[in-house]
Structures are given as C-alpha cells and as structure tokens.
C-alpha cells in the first residue's frame, strides 16, 4: 500500500477551511446550546408539572432521536419552512445547538439539584428571594460541578458536527469524503480527518482541565 501524502497536500487548503468551519460550528453549538440548555434546565426544575411538561418533552425528543435524523429534519424541513430555501451551515448550527441544549439542560438540572438543600434554606432564611438565592448561592456552586460533564458534552459536539457533512456543510468530513471520492482512497482522507478531530478534542480537554484546576484552587 502506498500512502499518498501528495493528495493530502493537495487538499490541505480545503481541510484548513473545513477545520475552521468545524470549529465555528462547534463554538456556535456550544454557545447557543449552553444558553438554551440553561433556560430549558431551569424550566424543567419548575415545581409546576404542567409548566415543566414542554421542557421535558423537548429533552425527551432531542435525546431520544438520532442527531443524524435531527440534522436532516432541520436541513430539509425546518430551515426551508422559515427561509424559503435551505442553508447547510445554518441548518447544522441549529440542529447541533438544539441537540446539545437537551443534554446541557440535563447537566444544569443535575448540577443544581446536587447542591445540598440546606444551602437554599440558609439563603432563604437570610431573607433572599428565590432568584437571589439561585444567583448568589446555588448557581456559583452548581457551575463548578457542571464543568466536567459540560466539557464532555462539548467534546461530543465537536465530533458530532461531522454529521453536517451529509447535508454538504463544507467542514472537515465533507472535504474528507470529497478526497475519498476523487481518488478512491480510504486511509489518506479518513486518517487525516481523524487526526484533525483528535487535535481539536485533545486541545479542548486540555483547556478544560486547566480551567477545572484553576477553579479548584481558587
């Protein structure tokens, strides 16, 4: 087997662009997914079962169906419905964000519920209202506990953004598949893609580890 570095070199500009898009998709998914996830997680914590129902339904749907299916639904169904025509990058961002939000909502809920009940009671006994107690006492503690599972979710998000290739969003795997198709080669495109993903995920976990350590000593 001769490994053709020359075709990797030929595709390097595309892979660089693809990597930038993968990073862009991931950051957009993380940011939008985190904001949505916090709102949905808080919604699920509402004491009223009826009010919490839509949030439960959301989480059940997005965790219970494959991201692949969600991406296709958003790309060919939801985006054309609102924009007239579809757009692969927008569809990928929407699907990744909605999907991540469901998981992040559960991470927030678990983080908040893991804080001892006495903390809320002490805050309330000092005259704080629910919002003050959440903001000054519960959330700062919960946030620290959420970092490891959130980090996992972000890493999953980077990897799953590769599914955007099937709706022709020109990210890493899109160019990988293009290379494979053009040269009938397997190892060169897919090993290269794997290596790029590995670099991205290892870098992120390195950053997260540092953040965790800093918060633990602070």
């Amino acid at each position: 087997m001769d490994f053709r570095f020359d075709i990797i070199a030929e595709y390097t500009p595309f892979l660089v662009k693809g990597t930038l898009l993968t990073i862009g998709l991931s950051i957009a998914g993380i940011l939008i997914g985190t904001v949505l996830g916090l709102l949905i997680g808080l919604g699920k914590l509402v004491n009223n079962k009826l009010a919490a129902f839509p949030f439960n339904l959301y989480i059940t749907f997005f965790r219970g169906t494959p991201l692949f299916v969600q991406i296709l639904l958003v790309h060919f169904g939801v985006v054309p419905l609102f924009m007239g025509e579809t757009n692969a990058i927008i569809a990928a961002i929407i699907a990744l964000s909605l999907n991540a939000a469901a998981y992040i909502a559960e991470i927030f809920r678990a983080g908040i519920q893991s804080i001892d009940r006495g903390q809320m009671e002490a805050a309330r006994s000092l005259g704080m209202n629910q919002r003050q107690a959440m903001r000054y006492v519960i959330l700062p503690q919960a946030f620290k506990r959420m970092i490891p599972p959130l980090g996992n979710e972000f890493i999953v998000l980077i990897k799953e953004s590769s599914l955007a290739a099937v709706i022709t969003a020109p990210e890493i795997m899109y160019w990988g598949r293009a290379m494979a198709g053009q040269y009938y080669k397997v190892w060169e495109p897919y090993l290269t893609a794997a290596l790029i993903y590995l670099i991205l995920t290892i870098s992120l976990s390195f950053l997260l580890n540092r953040l965790e350590r800093r918060l633990n000593t602070g």
Partner: peptide
C-alpha cells in the same frame, strides 16, 4: 422574604456557603 429577614436561623449542619469566605458569608 421581608419577614424571614427579621428572623435569624442557625442550622444543625451550619449551611455556610462554601464558595465564599467567612466575611463574604456574613456580608452577602
């Protein structure tokens, strides 16, 4: 909330806020 602020409570398990220093606990 206003009425609770008039009544101080001390718990068996202390329930200090672990992410804040002693003085921050008191000032919050």
């Amino acid at each position: 909330n206003k009425m609770r602020a008039e009544v101080g409570m001390v718990f068996q398990q202390f329930n200090l806020f672990p992410h804040k220093t002693v003085i921050e606990n008191i000032m919050l």
